[in-house]
């Protein structure tokens, strides 16, 4: 996947996770990498940038297992940014599916349609 594109999507996911609750870095990475193929080196730079831009703040929480952990918390600004980003994502992805579904929703449908088209072209 195009790196820039992927970054935008992961940014949205990171925001979404943190809108639900405050989390420490590894937990965010774990939660996201469960569902999409992405690793730390994509997520961490995003966490860092969004923090620098004031979308997140951080605080330390003592941990039973070793060093204190840095928790990330969405700010008011970050929340607004999330809503905005999510809106444009929904619009975008909605538009993409609008286009894709014109050719059918299921693989069988799409294949059948394509086969028919090829046959028709041959017979002409």
């Amino acid at each position: 996947m195009n790196a820039q594109f992927k970054r935008g999507i992961v940014e949205l996911c990171v925001l979404s996770e943190l809108v639900m609750e405050d989390m420490y870095g590894y937990r965010i990475i774990n939660n996201i990498s469960k569902d999409i193929d992405v690793n730390e080196n994509t997520i961490y730079p995003i966490l860092r940038r969004l923090t620098k831009e004031g979308h997140f703040t951080t605080y330390l929480v003592e941990s039973d297992l070793g060093a204190p952990r840095k928790y990330y918390k969405v700010t008011e600004k970050g929340f607004k940014y999330y809503l905005e980003l999510r809106d444009s994502w929904d619009n975008f992805i909605g538009g993409v599916y609008e286009i894709l579904n014109r050719g059918g929703k299921k693989n069988e449908q799409i294949s059948e349609r394509f086969r028919k088209r090829i046959e028709k072209a041959k017979s002409e």
Binding site: Y26, L65, A67, P68, K70
Partner: peptide, 12 residues
């Protein structure tokens, strides 16, 4: 940050 995250991963 990475020390902390790696530690967390180890703990899991």
């Amino acid at each position: 940050d990475h020390k902390e995250m790696i530690e967390a991963a180890k703990n899991e």
